[in-house]
Nucleic acid binder design. Structure first.
Length: 378
RNA sequence: GGGGGUGCGCCGGAGUUGGAGAGCCGGGCCAGACUGUAAAUCUGGUGUCUCUGACUGAAUAGGUUCGAGUCCUAUCACCCCCA
């Protein structure tokens, strides 16, 4: 595993690079579609490769551990074999579920007790067994076990939680060192910065994470409901500290505008459920602006969904047809919409990368932002 | 042709023993939300108007009554049974 930083934009902190992983190279900045339960919802692996041109996808430790279970994943020979995705995979550790399922878990120094959302059974996640589970899943990049704090979060709690996440990180690193990949390739561990919306905590956390000298550094605990300005401020605080020669991964971000703004701040990797979830809920991102596909105004609009999309379905099917499918609850609607949104996201980061390499990133960003973050005109 | 039954919101259902419904549930429809996925989910709206409030409304037209969605008469529509 290695990272080549190819170019840094002169008028911002945006970077273009290549991340080499066991299952292939990733051109950064990159967006990583989220495939929680061994599937990017409503999108087939073949489409992810051919249409979306995804280079890496996510899986989730908590969800895969509960279902289908590690016996199945390991029996298959790892997640890559199980879901037949032979490009890189990153697994989240379950740290986000500490946040999103706060009603059914209890945090202690040792780890987190979860009650399964499927059958109510009790499970314990520790930094150690989360490393073990991610070894069994076999992702190229595995995440440290952390606590993603909610927003708002009082300073006292944020401080305590951050320090615990740091201690957990050291336990993750220890376990990661004393174990090896089960499927014959290296798995890299990424530590996660916390600190909520407190700049001084973010600074402490970034310095701590940087001192661990891991190959990728991640920023967590953002995009949990805080104002965009806070997200950008915290990102700026930590990118200032993180080593330039290593990729920075901003977890859970975000909207197309969030991506461009954070690329400008020096972020290299993103993941977010927004494009896929919003697609299933009828919100489309297109090269001509945002479309609420359920809206009546598209009922008789026989224009293509997005003539500039890399997805054939978006060029060949009309807005009126997709509206019909969505309103009728047809599965194909979710498929076409998800393909559209992911194609848009991947195309956006490809364009960003090219403009960084060309030295035109900042002007391109300001010209495209008003279009893609506002409603499409009929 | 005869007998019986039922009619209110865009649709279906519930309910109303003569005592204040713009009013219950579900669906549809209209709009909004969603950021390391307990999410093909959730929230709101859905008679009219000059909209903090009014007005109209229980198939249609009459009637009884202090008061009618409820009782009576006629008409219309639909359903069931008989011929």
């Amino acid at each position: 595993m290695s990272f080549d930083l190819l170019h840094t934009d002169p008028s911002s902190s945006a970077r273009a690079g290549i991340l080499h992983l066991p299952h292939g190279d990733i051109e950064t900045p990159i967006f990583m579609p989220v495939g929680t339960a061994a599937t990017v919802k409503a999108v087939h692996q073949q489409e992810l490769k051919d249409q979306v041109q995804a280079q890496i996808i996510l899986g989730n430790t908590y969800h895969l551990y509960l279902r289908p279970g590690m016996d199945v994943i390991q029996g298959a020979g790892g997640l890559h074999k199980f879901n037949n995705w032979n490009l890189p995979i990153l697994t989240d550790s379950g740290g986000y579920q500490v946040y999103s399922m706060s009603k059914s878990r209890k945090i202690k120094e040792e780890g987190v007790k979860f009650r399964s959302h499927i059958d109510g059974s009790l499970h314990m996640f520790t930094p150690e067994n989360v490393m073990d589970i991610q070894r069994q899943i076999g992702a190229d990049i595995i995440m440290a076990f952390d606590e993603c704090t909610p927003y708002p979060c009082d300073e006292k709690y944020a401080t305590r939680s951050m320090h615990m996440t740091h201690r957990w990180l050291d336990r993750c690193i220890a376990r990661h060192k004393e174990t090896v990949g089960l499927y014959g390739y290296e798995q890299i561990l990424a530590p996660i910065i916390q600190g909520s919306t407190y700049p001084h905590l973010r600074k402490i956390s970034a310095e701590y994470i940087a001192s661990r000298d891991m190959p990728i550094n991640a920023i967590g605990g953002l995009s949990v409901g805080e104002p965009h300005a806070d997200m950008y401020d915290m990102t700026a605080v930590v990118t200032e500290i993180l080593p330039k020669e290593k990729p920075r991964y901003l977890m859970g971000v975000g909207t197309p505008a969030n991506l461009l703004e954070c690329i400008a701040l020096g972020i290299d990797m993103f993941d977010c459920v927004l494009p896929t979830r919003n697609a299933r809920h009828g919100l489309l991102y297109t090269s001509q602006g945002i479309v609420h596909i359920r809206n009546e105004k598209w009922k008789h609009c026989f224009d293509p969904i997005d003539p500039e999309s890399s997805a054939a379905t978006s060029r060949e099917h009309t807005l009126a047809y997709l509206r019909h499918l969505t309103i009728s609850g047809e599965a194909l609607g979710a498929m076409i919409a998800s393909l559209q949104n992911l194609s848009f996201y991947l195309s956006l980061v490809r364009q960003a990368r090219q403009h960084i390499l060309d030295g035109t990133f900042t002007t391109w960003k300001s010209s495209i932002l008003p279009i893609i973050s506002n409603p499409k005109a009929i």
